[in-house]
């Protein structure tokens, strides 16, 4: 198996792990959300890669072309993108409210403020 041939999968894995790492290690809530976005975006790339058919073109019927890429994953990922946008929106709204009521978006400081009560 040629490892380089599937470089798009490697990109997906790299992005996913980067996002996951950011979510786990960073204490800043906005950075956590950015990490989460990277994490979910990597899955989009995974799906798009799955759709590729060797030698296939864009799925538009045209004379002389017989092999097309699979359009279904593209459609699915459109839905997933919408979900991702909604998640980010809810997340940012929560961060805004947290900033309103705690005065900070650093996790350590929030925890300190909660514990000191």
């Amino acid at each position: 198996m040629n490892i380089g041939a599937h470089y798009n999968y490697w990109v997906a894995i790299f992005l996913m792990m980067t996002g996951f790492y950011v979510v786990i290690t960073h204490g800043n809530l906005i950075k956590k959300l950015i990490g989460l976005n990277l994490f979910t975006t990597s899955v989009f790339i995974l799906y798009i890669s799955l759709a590729k058919v060797k030698g296939g073109t864009a799925p538009i019927i045209a004379p002389g072309i017989e092999v097309y890429s699979n359009p279904l994953p593209h459609v699915l990922i459109l839905t997933a993108i919408v979900v991702g946008v909604a998640t980010t929106a809810v997340g940012l709204a929560l961060v805004l409210l947290i900033y309103d009521r705690y005065g900070t978006i650093e996790e350590d400081e929030i925890r300190l403020k909660d514990d000191s009560l």
Binding site: V23, T40, T87, V90
Partner: peptide, 24 residues
């Protein structure tokens, strides 16, 4: 409650994304 919701959002989204990968 806000902190709890945010924590749930992070973990829930990771869980849902895993499910998405599995389905894919």
């Amino acid at each position: 409650a806000l902190r709890a919701a945010f924590q749930y959002l992070i973990m829930g989204t990771i869980g849902a994304t895993f499910i998405l990968i599995g389905i894919g």
